[in-house]
Amino acid sequence: MNNNENLYQFLLRCADDNLIAGQRMAEWCSNGPILEEDLAMVNISLDFLGQSESFMEYAASLDTTGKTSDDLAFGRSEREYYNHLLVEQPNDDFAVSMVKLLFFSAFQKELYTALMEGKDERIAAISAKAVKEARYHYRHASDWFERLALGTDESLRRLTYAVEELWPFTENLFETDEVYNSLFAEQIVPDMKSIREKWMTTMREVFSNGGVDIPANVHMYAGGINGYHTEHLGHLLCEMQYLHHAHPGAQW
């Protein structure tokens, strides 16, 4: 139960996106291709977790049953998670992780920039802080995109594979529904079509710098924001929520 169902739902989407992205990025901790990059990826993971917590706290503040941000993060099942499909996809290899980060950070930097102008002050404030992180993530990912595209035959092959695997989940980032549309009517969230246009402009530039083709005519997946997920999410949550399932009610 909560005071503002639509706002609450949207906050959970933002919080879940960042939490799942942060958890995936944390998988690189002590597994990076070079020590410096290991540390860089942990920084990115920490940024995601911080952003997630800010949105989750806001969501918890609307919850009338006294749930905390931790209750919301560690107490919901995969059908109650509302992140986009892209962020829950497995890392597979470094190219997949960097392409995922590229798609997601390019989306986040446009979304946050727009949310800063929105009518909800708390969201605007969180976004103003988060946009700097998103821009840095984009810089990191787009640099790696170029290095892998123009590096060796193998890196290009892996990059191309990553693009083919992940591109079908990108349209989902711009999906809207009744929840979103009602917040749009309240001028809290921006027109998703304009976010998508900006995102596509960015992608055309990055792909052209790397001499890589943008996939055409691929089937695009929908879901995530309605609690309908790929099978990967369940495993991620199973691990993330392990202690809460093993020791119900314990305080950590």
């Binding site: 291709p33 060796t152 193998e154």
Partner: peptide
């Protein structure tokens, strides 16, 4: 597993 990444960076 990181070798191809380091090689790509060096080649770039």
């Amino acid at each position: 597993e990181g070798e191809w990444v380091r090689q790509a960076a060096a080649a770039f």
